[in-house]
Amino acid sequence: MAVEIPKDTWTGEVHAVTLGAIEADGGTRTKTVTVGGEKTLPFMHFEGETPNAPVVAVEIKDRRPDDWSPLLEEAWGSAMDDPAAWAKAAEEAGADLIQLSLSLTGSDGNPTTPQAAVDAVKAVLGATGLPLLVFGPGQADLDNELLVPVAEATKGERLVLGLCEDKNYRTIAATAMANDHLVIARTAMDVNLAKQLNILISDMGLPLERILMDPTTGALGYGIEYGYSVMERLRMAALQGDAMTQLPMIVTIGIETWKTKEGKVGDGVPEAWGDWKERAINWETLTAVTLIESAADIVVLRHPESVKRVKAAVTDLMTV
């Protein structure tokens, strides 16, 4: 019996967004990474094109973090003391992108200074040729204070600056616009909020081709289903032609999974959770792959073994 396979015909497609700029284009990257461009739901190769595979960014910090899981400390070792070394190690572990998170304070306990932020970013740019995403510490005022000088000092690099949120998007979007960078629009697990922030940022004049959206996700067991469905809905809206949802999606899975007890802690947890390391890596990997299958274009991870597994899964998924 010949079964006629129903194919969805989509009128819209996701913007292709290129991260990083090579020298010829005003930057210093040795390679760029393009995400997005999908013309169909994730990996439905039989009905539409997925020109760019989802990619993995590895999260590093500007200094050794105080609150990361011992499993991560074990994996990265002394590289964590130096952002440049850490970036190199991440690249070796298979990262497609480096995501640098600036700390709230320096190791002396004082707030991170703009100069320190710029130095860290420059050090990482010097150590790796991969495109870079830079996130502020997550407090509106300090984010603005640090990201503006970083953006200015790296003009033309097509860095990705994070994070624009609905109450604090103007400054970051403006500096990205002025210095040829990209931004991430982050909203709290809601299709409409995501769309609204994209509209607000694009209303400022930043082209949609320079915006990534982060609809936010919880880790497995901590609200992954909300992120999962929001991403499915956003991607369907994009393919149906809704311009304000046609942006590639990024999710910060590392920070979410490694703050869960399942990832972070080895002692004093139920025996039924099994081996700590394997469980923790499974936690990060399954969160990532599940969200990639729901439409994530960039997943930010922390553990090198998860990077390996997620990349293997992507290779498999991209096989036509």
Partner: peptide, 15 residues
């Protein structure tokens, strides 16, 4: 709730 969030914008999220 979904319809409400969508309408919580000027004039509407879906222009």
């Amino acid at each position: 709730y979904d319809a409400f969030m969508s309408a919580l914008f000027l004039p509407h999220t879906d222009l």
